[in-house]
Structures are given as C-alpha cells and as structure tokens.
Amino acid sequence: MSTTGVPTSNGKYALELQDVHCYYGSFRAVKDVNLKLHDKKITAFIGPSGCGKSTVLRALNRMNDLIPGGRVEGRILLRGKNLYDQDVDPVEVRRRIGMVFQKPNPFPKSIFDNIAWGAKINGFKGNMKELVEQSLRSAALWDEVKDKLDQSGLGLSGGQQQRLCIARAIATQPEIILMDEPCSALDPIATLKIEDLMRELVKNYTIVIVTHNMQQAARASDYTAYYLMDRSDRAGELVEYGETDQLFTNPKDKRTEDYITGRFG
C-alpha cells in the first residue's frame, strides 16, 4: 500500500457519526458532525487548535464521559448500534475502540505487563507470552525490547514508549484505534517510524488520527477531515471531509484551501 495511491473504499464503514454535538457543561464545543469513517483506512482529523478535532475523537470511544460535564448528542454507530444508547456500557466500547494518547503514557510496570495488563482485564485466556511478542512485533518494537521485557516501560525513549502504547492498544485486539496527536511529543525520526507503523496496522485496523501536522496528514492518511471553529458560537464544525489527495490538492471549501495553503492556522 503506497501513500500516494488513491485509496479506494471497500464500501464498508467502521463508524458513522450522525448529527453529533459535543458539550462540556453548557458549552457546545462541537456541532453537527456527520461523518462516515472508512473501514481499514486511516482517517486524519486536522484543523487549528480549539476546532474540536480531539473532542470528536474522544467521543468515538466515550472518553468524554470521564470529563465532568462531558456530553455527546447525536448518534455514533458501530455496525449499526449507537454507542450512546442507554444500554451501552462505555467499558465495552473502549475495549473495541482503543486509544493512543498525545503524550506516551506507559504504566509504571514492566514492558511485558504493560502489554499483558490490558489483555488480561479484557479476559484474554490464551498464551500471554505469544500475545506480547506478537503485539510488540506489530508495533515494530520487538527487536528493541525483546531482551528487557521485565524492565520498566518508562526506561524506554519517547518514541519507543509511544510504540509500546500502540502495542498495548493492539494487544486488546480492538476494531478501531484512535490516536490523539501520537507524534506531537516525538522527534522526526520517531514520528516517521510511527507513520510507517500506521501504514502496516491499517491492513488490520481502522485508524483515526488527530494531528496538528498537515504534512503528516497528507503523508499518512487515506481520508482527511478538516475542522474549524465557527466564530459566531465558538463551536467546532466539520468543514470538509474527503480523500486525502483530493482534499489537499483540490479542496472544495475556501476555508480548507486557506488552511492547507498556510494562509492561517
């Protein structure tokens, strides 16, 4: 799979957002997002600070529930089931939709336990050693850490820590992986490694990534969604969504064009 080839959708959607509004208390941070995330593709959310892209991302696996006053209206459908229905357990949602955070946040446990813990609480009963190795291999970290699995995950470099966090997310065998600016704390080489890794992972997982870095979105994603804050009510909104190549070379909306050509933001 090349980054330049135009990706074709297989017609399946991993998640569908319908009329999604996100609130913090009485403040509406994001309004009226309608979006279909393509299965086994990388979708990038871009936009200037405060445009709500991270808020939308965190709505996808109900992480906003953890913020006091955080609330989502509208529907987010996973295989037809609304994740915000009354009978949905957010813990079950997060087991299927994993997350990698802005700052690498490994547990203060051994590398092995970092991976094994998530699988264990998810009821994994198989061969844990195998799962750990397989997850670390998928995250392109195995060769660097195979001799020190019992050492603390915090002893690794920032880039390795972030790949450990990706391995940890993979180990729970989610359907979708959300990444909230996963490279913002990393140097360019580590960033490229994560991007290469994403291209590998997307064969098996649907990936949604929030990034400030437009080159990254252009390089690494198949689809791009551009968000912007509406100045009238300070709520973020989805301005344009489409195939990455098309959005970057031939944006339909004037505001998208202004942003990607660097006229602001």
């Binding site: 696996n61 992480m63 953890l66 813990v91 079950e92 997060r94 087991r95 299927r96 994993g98 997350m99 990698v100 955070f101 700052k103 946040n105 490994p106 547990f107 203060p108 813990w117 998530g118 609480i121 998810n122 966090c165 940890r168 997310a169 729970t172």
Partner: peptide
C-alpha cells in the same frame, strides 16, 4: 497523573 488513568480507561478498564 491522570494520563495513567486515561490509559487504563482507554484499554477498557473499569
């Protein structure tokens, strides 16, 4: 730090 709790919740921990 809250980031550790987020990591745990993000993995589907109760």
């Amino acid at each position: 730090p809250g980031s550790l709790r987020q990591a745990a919740f993000g993995l589907g921990a109760t």
